[in-house]
Write a protein that binds this DNA or RNA. Structure first.
Lengths: 212, 212
DNA sequence: GTCTATAGCCCGATAGAC
DNA sequence: GTCTATCGGGCTATAGAC
C-alpha cells in the first residue's frame, strides 16, 4: 500500500502546484520516480486517482465538521478555522480546477453543497459560543450572515492571494493573511483581549505550517 | 473583422460554460459553424484567441474602474456593482480556469493585481459617498476593510454558487444572489430607505439580464 | 476567407516480459 | 510490483486547393 499512498500524495501536491490539467500522467510518474506503467498498475484510470484524492479530502473535512466549541471559545475557534484553512490549502485543486476540463472527483461533486452548509452552521455555532462567553457582541439574527461571509472569505482567500500575484504555497503567509482578513469582519466587536488572543493564535498557526 | 469577432464571442461563451481546457479548437470551430482551418486563419494559435478575449476584458474593466459616485450615491453604487458583476460573469473563465492547465491571458496576469487594488479603492469611494450622504453609518477607519471584504464576496459569488450546485448561467439568479449576499455586510447600518432602494435596484439588474 | 487534408505531438491507457 | 514497448486517439497547427 505504500507505493499507492506515495502516488496519491505526490499527485495531490503536483495538482495543487501546477493544476490538474497541467500535470500529465507521464510527468506524474517521473515525479514519483517510477515508470508510467507502474502508475497504471496502481490506478487503472486517471480519474481513479482523482477520486482517491477526493476521498482523502472527505476524510479531512468530515473530521473537522464534527468539531464543536468546548471550554475555551476563543482557542477552540482558532483551532477550527485553522483546520478549515488546512483543508482549503491541501486539497485546493479539487475545487479550483473542477470546471476547467470537465472532470470532477465524484465524492466532491456530490457532497460539496452539504459540506458548505454544515460549515456555515458550524462556524455559526463557534461564533455563538463567543457571544455567549461575552467575547463577541453580535446580534443573534445576524450571526448566520456573518458565518456565511466569513466562510466565503476563508474559502477563497488563497485564490484571491494568487490573483494578487502573491505566492500561495505553504509557508508564504497566505493562510495567515486570509485568517487575518476574515477577522476584520467582526474583531471590532470583540473584547480587546479575545481579539488579541485570536491574532496570536493565527501567528502560531502559520509558524506550525512553516515547520511542516 | 466580423468573423473574428464572432469567433471571440463564441469562444468566450463556450469557455465560460464548459471551461477553457474542455473546449477544443475543433469543438469551437463546430460551434462557430466553420471549418477548423478557418479558425486557424483568424487566430494563429489557441493562445492568441485567449489573449483576444483578455483584451476585451481589459476594456470592460477599465471602463468600470473610471466610474465615480456622483449625485445619487445609492443609485450610483448599485450601477457600479452591477457593472462589476457583469465583468465577473462575462469573463469568468479567465480567472477561474487560469491555473488549471498552465495558460494565462498575458494582459490578465499582468494587470489583475492592479485592477483588484483599484477596485478596492473604487468601492471604498462609493461607500464613503454613502456615509457622507448619511445613508450609511460606518467608521472611516473600517471602510477599507469593508470594501475589501465586499469585493471578495462579489468576486467569488458565482464560484460559490457553482460549488453549492446552483446553476450560474445568465438568468439563473446567481448574480442577484451574490449582490444580495454582499449587502448583508453593511445593510444593517443603512437607512431603511437606502437599503430598500438597493434591493429594488438589484431586482432590476437581474431582470435586465434575463432580457439580454 | 473558407475549405479539405493531413502532419506531428502528447496523452491516457494496454500488453506482456521480468 | 515494476518495467519496456506500443497503441489508438484527440489535440494544436500547417499546407495548399478553391
Amino acid at each position: 500500500m505504500k507505493t499507492k499512498d506515495r502516488i496519491v500524495e505526490t499527485a495531490r501536491v503536483r495538482f495543487n502546484e501546477q493544476g490538474y490539467g497541467a500535470v500529465s500522467t507521464s510527468a506524474l510518474a517521473a515525479a514519483c520516480g517510477m515508470a508510467e506503467g507502474n502508475l497504471w498498475y496502481h490506478f487503472k484510470t486517471r480519474r481513479a486517482l482523482l477520486d482517491a484524492i477526493g476521498e482523502r479530502f472527505a476524510v479531512a473535512i468530515e473530521a473537522r465538521l464534527i468539531l464543536r466549541p468546548a471550554s475555551d471559545p476563543v482557542g477552540d475557534y482558532a483551532a477550527m478555522v485553522a483546520a478549515m484553512m488546512g483543508e482549503f490549502r491541501d486539497f485546493r485543486f479539487l475545487y479550483r480546477d473542477q470546471h476547467s476540463y470537465g472532470e470532477h472527483a465524484e465524492i466532491v461533486r456530490l457532497n460539496a453543497p452539504d459540506w458548505t452548509l454544515r460549515t456555515f452552521a458550524q462556524l455559526e455555532l463557534y461564533l455563538a459560543a463567543l457571544v455567549d462567553a461575552g467575547q463577541l457582541e453580535w446580534p443573534r439574527e445576524r450571526l448566520h450572515d456573518l458565518a456565511v461571509n466569513a466562510t466565503i472569505i476563508l474559502r477563497y482567500g488563497l485564490e484571491h492571494d494568487r490573483e494578487m500575484g502573491e505566492a500561495t504555497g505553504s509557508g508564504h503567509g497566505s493562510v495567515q493573511r486570509t485568517l487575518r482578513r476574515h477577522l476584520t469582519l467582526f474583531e471590532h466587536r470583540m473584547t480587546p483581549a479575545a481579539a488579541q488572543r485570536l491574532h496570536t493564535a493565527i501567528d502560531r498557526i502559520e509558524a506550525a505550517q512553516l515547520a511542516a
